[in-house]
Design a protein around this nucleic acid. Structure first.
Lengths: 167, 167
DNA sequence: GTCGTTGCAAAACTTTTGCAGTTCA
DNA sequence: TGAACTGCAAAAGTTTTGCAACGAC
């Protein structure tokens, strides 16, 4: 099984604080709603889409509800602030992941079960840098999505005929 | 300036013919509309989105109009048939490019002007193969998008303030 | 007090779908 | 002839926006 082999990197300030700084630079305000959202976004390291975040916020027992519009508006901010980034589209929705306090990485995406596996490879980054240089291009970021079948899905089905279990 | 340094590869059959074969395998029919669409899609090698294709078809002087629904339906077929593929999202629309008669490649995408520059690098493919192997993952394809500023956009602006011209 | 912000409902947009009539094989 | 196809209009689904009330600084 492929395990997550990346580690969280040390960050100078918490996401909420970084968000606050970002807001300050644009003369925007840290509101109750924005605090709730950045909290919830960084409460779990899973990738998520807008709808899932809306669900998670609706499920909170503390009644800290935030409207759909505000969530969409905040996702834009968080992306602009470099706290999260879009990684792909899945089921016609934009998928986000943490971009702050987490090293650059790419994804293996299973065409059958949708599982995302993260990986990091420095050589690829170096090659891309080289290629960009050759084209007079200044890299700000990249996204590599590898599609195919994950470990689980390219094995023969685990639910074999009973007969085989007896062999 | 970065020029397109990829060449069209020889293909055994024309796109329209390949489409016909695909349709045959699914007991579908080659209709007047489908012929018009595959023709128009392969008339130019530029990447495009559904709306642009609709515009191009609407602009045809021969009056070969095709409805929006049929175009969307055909794009799905063409993708499934391996004739085109989605390369990214731009302006909230799926962007397509030719996938038949054209070698695998990736893109440098300018964050400012949106220009797409194609490149191909075999070493990256090999690295990805290696990484996939390590994870028990079977690659079916990949997409690498490099974001940043293209050659043009990372130079100082050519249209300077008038004052500077007088210095 | 001044703006920025929120929530709501409505709008905007791309893409999909149901259906009646049409066409291909 | 019959199943597949088209075009239309309507629907679906996500994301955005106008606006009046509200809240941060």
């Amino acid at each position: 099984m492929s395990e997550l082999d990346l580690e969280t990197i040390a960050v100078a300030v918490a996401p909420a604080e970084k968000y606050r700084e970002f807001l300050a630079t644009k003369s925007l305000r840290m509101t109750r709603e924005r605090a709730i959202i950045v909290d919830e976004v960084f409460a779990s390291h899973e990738h998520f889409d807008a709808d899932q975040l809306i669900q998670r916020l609706a499920r909170r027992s503390d009644g800290k509800r935030v409207s759909r519009s505000t969530i969409y508006r905040s996702l834009k901010h968080l992306e602009e602030a470099g706290l999260i980034r879009k990684i792909a589209r899945q089921d016609d929705r934009d998928l986000y992941e943490h971009d702050y306090g987490y090293p650059q990485h790419d994804h293996l995406i299973c065409n059958r079960c949708g599982t995302l596996t993260e990986f990091h490879n420095e050589q690829i980054s170096e090659l891309l840098e080289q290629i960009a240089r050759d084209h007079g291009f200044r890299i700000e970021g990249h996204r590599t999505e590898v599609y195919g079948l994950c470990d689980n899905c390219c094995r023969p089905p685990v639910t074999r005929p009973k007969k085989l279990n007896l062999l």
